[in-house]
């Protein structure tokens, strides 16, 4: 079943001195409950593509269709997890998770039950009355994930969600995400610049090019979970993708040296 269809998507940013072709002619179809990683060096348009799916930015051309409807605004059917967490700092953990449910107009009892269950699932229960500033990065990202799970979006859009975490926390959150994905049957679009993270998580990896942002290569990953980053097939993939990402990275670096970065 097709969940997201992107056709001929283009996004051009107008900066003072130049036009930046962040996305050009993107065509991508994502199936229901598929886990897709967008991979590429920084600046290649991954966030722009994700933001277009989320409805945060308007496309310069082309369209994003979700469940047969054209995306023209953000909405709770596409829950976003941001790299900067974006938790509301003035709300406690449980208020943050409850926010989307309160907007939906659920009764107090329903909200409490639902939030309680999610906080238990994500091991956040003891921290329910804390404010975000008193949480570690990993914990904040758990809250952000719980906040999106609360509104029950069939699609989760994640922009380098684990990019700022240390290696151990990162691995444990990756495992947790895979568990959540099985339990809640989500379609996930996950942005990363880590090749290993992409191979560890994805059903399909989409490698993007740098300026203009286009799709360079798509790679199905059929390895069974849990995947072993030390395994032979894993490393074979890593080498292949590594070469491709490096080419784009080098183009980026050349641009930066020329002062266009």
């Amino acid at each position: 079943m097709e969940k997201i269809r992107i056709t001929g998507l283009q996004k051009t940013f107008q900066s003072a001195s130049q036009e930046i072709h962040a996305l050009q002619e993107i065509n991508l179809t994502i199936a229901e409950v598929e886990f897709v990683c967008l991979l590429g060096p920084s600046g290649c348009g991954k966030s722009t593509l994700l933001n277009a799916i989320a409805g945060f930015i308007e496309a310069s051309a082309g369209e994003v269709v979700v469940d047969g409807r054209m995306v023209d605004a953000p909405g709770p059917d596409r829950g976003v997890v941001f790299q900067e967490y974006a938790l509301f700092p003035w709300m406690t953990v449980s208020r943050n998770v409850a926010f989307g449910l309160e907007i939906k107009g659920l009764t107090r009892g329903d909200i409490e039950e639902r939030v309680g269950a999610l906080l238990h699932t994500l091991n956040l229960w003891e921290f329910r009355d804390r404010f975000p500033k008193d949480l570690s990065g990993g914990m904040k990202q758990r809250v952000a994930i719980a906040r999106v799970l609360a509104i029950d979006s069939p699609i989760m859009l994640m922009d380098e969600p684990f990019g700022a975490l240390d290696a151990l926390t990162r691995r444990s959150l990756q495992d947790e995400l895979l568990r959540i994905r099985r339990e809640f049957c989500k379609t996930i679009v996950f942005v990363t610049h880590s090749i290993e993270e992409a191979i560890y998580l994805a059903d399909r990896i989409v490698v993007m090019t740098y300026r203009p942002g286009t799709i360079k290569f798509e790679q199905q990953v059929a390895l069974p979970h849990p995947r072993d980053p030390a395994g032979a097939e894993f490393n074979e993939l890593k080498r292949t993708l590594g070469g491709l990402v490096m080419e784009e990275h080098d183009r980026h670096a050349r641009d930066e040296i020329r002062g266009e970065g």
Partner: peptide, 27 residues
Amino acid sequence: GIYLRAARNLGAGNTVIFRRVILPAAT
């Protein structure tokens, strides 16, 4: 702006955003 994005994404309309995001963020 990220708080506004997050709130919109969670389904908040303008009134909710003003009351529950902009106002507390500005306190």
